[in-house]
Design a protein around this nucleic acid. Structure first.
Length: 207
DNA sequence: ACAATGATTGGCT
DNA sequence: GCCAATCATTGTC
């Protein structure tokens, strides 16, 4: 499936209602959707293939487990906005906030399949594309990599996914992939909950 | 005020 | 496979 820049820009954002559901419901439904970042009028686009749900109070792995802090304020807002944080002092990770105001739930975006603006993504990441595009696999296959590929950072913290420059759109007529689940990656608490969701057999996963 | 921690990545063995 | 980088946030004293 290949769309022009104008076509990517014309797709409507997902509804507020979609984002108002719980993170564990929204997470698998984000698979197969497209994340679009418009930079200087040009869309950079990737298909979401791997996510993790982080719940509110009751999920010790979630940033919101200990309640509202300055950093986690966006996660406690109503769903449909972006929560960005600095990971290990090195990488930015982006989340889709879900639920109602006060819930404190979000979905971490972990991997994208590059769809449009591929050269821009590779340049942002410092990846040299070979003719066969074999190195393309490495462009957005991790939470820190995908933010760098799309040019997302703290400026986007708290911004809406329902209008430019960041949005999530549906671009498929019908869902054709299978969803698989596993425990979440890189956490030390609540390690057994199956809250990682990914497109089965995708070549674009973080692992 | 201070020390520990971490939803990761890239480089090197 | 192992490990250093790097720093904002958070908990503790």
């Amino acid at each position: 499936m290949t769309l022009s820049a104008a076509e990517w820009l014309s797709l409507p954002p997902l509804s507020q209602r979609f984002y108002a559901q719980g993170a564990a419901e929204v997470a698998p439904m984000l698979l197969g959707k497209a994340l679009v970042h418009v930079v200087r009028g040009q869309p950079i686009v990737g298909e979401i293939v791997e996510v993790e749900a982080y719940l509110g109070l009751g999920d010790p792995a979630s940033h919101t487990y200990r309640g509202l802090t300055p950093r986690t304020r966006p996660m406690f807002e109503a769903g449909g906005i972006c929560y960005v944080y600095l990971s290990y002092g090195v990488n930015y990770c982006m989340n889709v906030v879900t639920g109602r105001k006060g819930d404190g739930e979000a979905v971490l975006l972990r991997a994208l399949a590059p769809l449009h603006g591929i050269e821009r993504m590779a340049k942002n990441r410092g990846v040299v594309l070979d003719e066969r595009h074999a190195t393309l696999r490495n462009v957005a296959c991790g939470p820190g990599k995908l933010t760098k590929a799309l040019g997302v950072d703290l400026r986007h913290n708290g911004s809406s996914f329902r209008d430019s420059p960041l949005r999530i759109v549906d671009f498929r007529k019908e869902v054709s992939h299978e969803v698989a689940t596993s425990p979440r990656i890189g956490i030390t608490k609540a390690v057994d909950l199956p809250l990682r969701f990914f497109v089965k057999d995708s070549r674009w996963l973080s692992r």
